Amino acid sequence: MDLAQHADARLAQWSALTRGGACCDRPAPGLCAGDREIVRFPGGSTAQVHLTTAMIERLRPALRTSTALNLTPAPTGWVGVRLETGSDIDLLATLVSAALLAAERTTD
């Protein structure tokens, strides 16, 4: 099992997340909170987390310090996470927690 699969399996156990469903209209595996896609695994050793643009701006100083993260220049609300070590999965889990919080607060 590669790290992306391990992360997917770990996060799929969270009661706040469900696999696929109406929120995921793409072939990449995804996990949703209600009708909002929260995390997806587009392939390789990567994940993408929907933090919302407001949450990204709030966390940007801390997010910039991580070499495992890919912040897109355009405000999409998504952050890429390279999964190369076990600590990257922990980082992903932390970001998913933040994404769940952001999803409760906004419809971004």
Rank of each mutant, 00 (worst) to 15 (best):
T53W: 11
R36A: 10
R64H: 06
Q48N: 13
R105C: 13
L59F: 07
P27S: 05
E84L: 10
L71C: 10
A12K: 15
D8P: 03
A22V: 13
L17S: 10
F41R: 02
T107S: 14
R36Y: 06
L69V: 10
A12M: 04
T65Q: 15
D35G: 11
R58K: 12
N70P: 02
V39Y: 01
L91F: 04
A102Y: 09
L3E: 03
L59P: 02
A102Q: 07
P29I: 14
L83G: 03
E84H: 06
L31N: 03
T106F: 10
R60S: 12
L17G: 09
I89C: 08
A68P: 03
G30E: 10
R19W: 09
T107R: 15
V81E: 01
G20W: 09
R105K: 08
L91Q: 00
A74T: 12
L59R: 14
H50S: 05
D108K: 04
A99I: 05
T106Y: 06
L31H: 04
D8T: 01
I89F: 06
R58C: 06
E84Q: 09
L92K: 02
T46W: 03
L91I: 03
R10T: 12
A22I: 14
G86H: 13
G21Y: 13
T106P: 08
A98R: 08
N70R: 14
A33W: 13
D88C: 01
E37F: 00
R64G: 07
D108V: 06
L17D: 04
T106D: 14
Q13V: 12
G34Y: 09
H50M: 13
V49Y: 03
D108T: 06
L101T: 06
G80P: 05
Q5S: 15
G30H: 04
G44I: 06
H50L: 07
A54V: 07
T18P: 08
W14S: 04
L51R: 00
C24H: 12
R58S: 09
I56F: 05
P27V: 09
T67P: 11
A9I: 02
A62T: 11
L11F: 03
I56E: 06
G21R: 14
D2T: 03
R19A: 14
S97M: 09
R26F: 13
N70K: 14
G44H: 05
A9L: 09
G86D: 10
G21I: 11
L51W: 04
A33D: 15
F41E: 01
R26C: 08
G20I: 05
G34K: 06
S45Y: 08
A99V: 01
Q5A: 09
S66Y: 07
L51D: 02
A22T: 15
L100N: 05
R40F: 01
L31K: 00
G34P: 06
N70D: 10
R60K: 13
L100F: 13
M1A: 03
N70C: 10
G20V: 10
R40I: 02
D88H: 08
